[in-house]
Design a binder for these strands. Structure first.
Lengths: 167, 167
DNA sequence: GAAGATTGAGAGTTCAATCTTC
DNA sequence: GAAGATTGAACTCTCAATCTTC
């Protein structure tokens, strides 16, 4: 007696690829598609946990970047660089964090063109509770063994690692 | 003489996690964050290839789903289910595909509430050229060895596989 | 002239509400 | 009443243009 397993849509796509004689690209297509799907899954889990706290993942990342920085403040441009997002996205995220009292904008004393975002005590408190919630409900439930986790991290790192730089 | 390598921001985050005694979640956090970054990378590569063809990845996926379906047509609800997106996103994607002449909307003869999307000859042609471009510029350049690709696919599959179902 | 940040426009996604058909 | 699809509102991201300061 065999348990009925739904076929994997990505394996199906892989077979379809091979049937069109795209053998050389079939595995790559499967990996790209898999990453897209897993990102959807993680993303929706993360947003579910953060929503009651009034945060999105983008704003959470900004908050944690500031929380871990030595002085608790960073130029907006630096934030965009580290998170690999458009300057306009940083402006948007910091606008919202600021109006929620989690972050403060101050002029950069070393450069009149630049603005610093600095984390507030409330911001630090929220960053901590959000992290604890994410640890419990997402990060500790990835569904891989410790060995597999290290392996997955290494493989994803190899994709991110290009020309001596991590991106 | 050693090549200067930029430190990996995700490894840094991992160390920060451990310094806060979140050991149990550190690897999971690193994997979730890595998947988010790799998705950003793949996404931007894919959109760069598809943009000159007037497609987004979402619309490309709809097109391929129809192209591979036996009759060349599917109910909109089925499409949303397979791609794991909101019904409103399917409506939006099909609207655009239809106005570009790549897809046709027809009433479902088996259910008056339902609408079928069916791929047009132009849609099939564009699906083929888009696939060839993606194969060449993205899928064949993932940056992993064949063995590593199979390993990565298996690990991502394990994350997607929950309760006997793939998602 | 170049760099940092902001603004408004355009595109895509999700949600709640609505309409039609089962 | 429930399911399939559509609509409009709210949000986020990206891009091009703009403004200020280097």
């Amino acid at each position: 007696m065999s348990r009925k397993l739904r076929t994997d849509p990505i394996e199906l796509a892989q077979r379809n690829w091979r049937s069109r004689h795209w053998e050389a690209a079939a595995d790559g297509m499967a990996i790209v598609t898999s990453v897209m799907r897993v990102q959807q899954i993680f993303s929706s889990e993360v947003e579910t946990v953060l929503k009651p706290l009034g945060l999105t993942f983008a704003r959470y990342e900004v908050l944690m970047l500031l929380d871990f920085s030595s002085s608790g403040e960073l130029p907006l441009g630096k934030i965009g660089e580290r998170l690999q997002v458009h300057p306009a996205s940083v402006t948007n995220a910091v606008d919202r964090l600021e109006s929620d009292g989690l972050v403060l904008r101050t002029p950069n004393p070393r450069d009149g063109r630049s603005t610093l975002a600095s984390i507030s005590p409330d911001g630090r408190k929220l960053a901590a509770s959000a992290s604890i919630a994410l640890n419990q409900h997402v990060f500790e439930c990835v569904g891989l063994t410790p060995t597999e986790q290290r392996s997955a991290f290494r493989l994803l790192g190899k994709i991110r690692h290009v020309a001596g730089d991590y991106r």
